[in-house]
């Protein structure tokens, strides 16, 4: 039963990873940007909630109303300014700029909020859970996060496939010059994609804050986990990302069940194994020629 519980917790954790990976996957798929500040942005989102609403320690639901929209604006503006500019100088510049931003965000948070860790609560919901069997606990909060993750993935997928702006984003991803020729305002559309990605990052940061303690330096690990979920799942496929998140979550919880210090390492090892055996991931969107 302990193992069944580990599997269930792993799948629930996978939802959180998928939520993290969604923004990373979107930015890379559409803009070709690897955002090395991804994890730090999530943590920044959580700290914005801490700073603006001291009461988030009692209920984080309020933060959901304003942090993701705020980050959407932030994403739009940064894409129109710093990120857009760096993209025109090539992928190396983008990497270096986002890495520089990551260092800045981490240390600014350290300076502003000290190294103390925080976490969010959702009132009574934080600790409430279902107990279908003796050793199995299904936290409502964690199930809620999984549901939110699936919803976000569905909404992003529908947004990309069904809406006009989504079509323009996909056109941009396929061929930005051709998209520009047919009248797509590429800079605006790229910034919309960044806005969506940033909003999901903020959401992921808030979700993480309810899951575990976070501190200014939590971002690095989150970036690596999100990235591993994307690679395990397969590049460019949002459903693959969900699968990848679940595989990583399973590896971590089962690893932790074997030995509490082995969890994160087990996740990394599964990632390396996938890389060695199936470098295109479990569910690649496209088959390489």
């Amino acid at each position: 039963m302990i193992w069944v519980n580990a599997v269930i917790q792993g799948l629930l954790l996978g939802g959180l990873f998928a939520l993290f990976a969604c923004g990373l996957s979107l930015l890379f798929g559409v803009l070709g940007i690897i955002n090395l500040a991804h994890g730090d942005l999530a943590v920044l989102g959580a700290y914005v909630a801490v700073a603006l609403l001291p009461s988030v320690h009692t209920n984080v639901l309020w933060a959901l109303l304003f942090v993701p929209p705020l980050f959407a604006v932030f994403g739009y503006v940064s894409q129109r300014t710093v990120m857009g500019r760096s993209m025109r100088s090539g992928p190396l510049t983008t990497l270096l700029v986002t890495f520089g931003l990551s260092v800045v965000i981490q240390n600014a948070l350290l300076e502003g909020f000290s190294a103390d860790s925080h976490s969010f609560t959702l009132g009574a919901l934080t600790t409430r859970s279902l107990h279908p069997a003796s050793d199995i606990s299904l936290s409502w909060l964690r199930m809620g996060i999984l549901v939110v993750a699936v919803l976000v993935l569905v909404v992003v997928q529908l947004f990309l496939s069904r809406t006009g702006i989504g079509r323009q984003i996909r056109a941009l991803a396929d061929d930005d010059e051709a998209a520009a020729i047919t009248g797509v305002n590429t800079r605006h559309v790229a910034a919309i994609a960044a806005a969506v990605a940033f909003a999901t990052v903020a959401l992921a940061g808030l979700a993480f804050g309810t899951y575990a303690q976070f501190s200014p330096t939590s971002g690095s690990n989150l970036l690596i986990f999100a990235f591993e979920a994307v690679i395990i799942g397969g590049l460019g496929s949002l459903w693959g990302t969900l699968a990848g998140g679940c595989v990583l979550g399973l590896a971590q919880t089962i690893g932790a069940q074997i030995d509490p210090t082995f969890g994160v390492l087990a996740g990394h090892l599964v990632f390396l194994a996938v890389l060695a055996v199936r470098p295109n991931g479990l569910m690649p969107a496209t088959v390489e020629a």
Partner: peptide, 20 residues
């Protein structure tokens, strides 16, 4: 392992290896 990754994914992949 890491040469299977390109560009930015290589960057994060090497980082993951360092964590390992």
């Amino acid at each position: 392992l890491v040469f299977r990754l390109r560009g930015g994914y290589f960057a994060i992949g090497t980082w993951a290896v360092a964590e390992v």
